[in-house]
């Protein structure tokens, strides 16, 4: 399988590469238009801040390419948020692939939402073999509200989108590459789509 990880200097690329390596899968890191387009599957990682990430994508013309992709695509953490339309973080226009807004947590609880929390309402082949209320690792200050595209939810304290699916675009707010055996299973499930 020709698996490509989108390279736009996102912070957690190495962790995603290592997680795939633990599954015995080699991936290519690329920001090249043709290489990404030719991939069987694409992973789009990300940690950091939305507006600077968008600038990085634009400088590589990836803001034009990514919405056109037809193969199974997996956005992780900031990589999920960037697929949406707009973020309150830096009042940033995003890739606009999924028609959703990204909001900042308004809660008495600690922000960032950091640590292990539970996935519920699992509703996708992405979660094959994963139990309801499984723990996964989150670290984020912005979130996507529940929507018709939500395929898993987590509460902090209100329920929000833990994962999304829109056409061929899958996305997780949590970090499968850092979520122990459950996270590894979710990555494996994506590779099997």
């Amino acid at each position: 399988m020709n698996l490509v990880i989108v390279d736009y200097k996102a912070g957690n690329v190495q962790s995603v590469l290592f997680a795939l390596e633990r599954l015995g899968v080699q991936a290519t890191l690329s920001s090249d238009f043709e290489t990404i387009k030719a991939a069987d599957k694409v992973i789009f990682p990300g940690v950091g801040e939305a507006s600077s990430a968008m600038l990085q994508l634009k400088s590589r013309n990836l803001d034009k390419l990514l919405p056109e992709l037809k193969q199974p695509f997996f956005g992780v953490c900031l990589g999920m948020q960037l697929l949406c339309k707009h973020s309150e973080e830096g009042d940033t226009d995003l890739l606009g692939i999924i028609p959703l807004q990204v909001k900042r947590f308004q809660t008495e609880l600690k922000v960032p939402h950091m640590g292990w929390n539970q996935l519920e309402g699992l509703n996708s082949p992405l979660f094959a073999g994963i139990q309801e209320k499984e723990y996964v690792y989150y670290v984020h200050s912005y979130y996507v509200p529940l929507s018709e595209y939500t395929i898993a939810q987590t509460s902090y304290p209100e329920p929000f989108s833990g994962a999304l699916q829109y056409k061929n675009f899958y996305a997780a707010q949590f970090h499968p590459e850092k979520s122990g055996p459950a996270g590894a299973q979710i990555l494996k499930n994506f590779l099997a789509l």
Binding site: Q14, F18, V139, H175, E177, K178, G183
Partner: peptide, 11 residues
């Protein structure tokens, strides 16, 4: 650090 990241699957 690289070696740790390669082998462990928690943060």
């Amino acid at each position: 650090v690289r070696d740790i990241a390669r082998h462990i699957d928690i943060p």
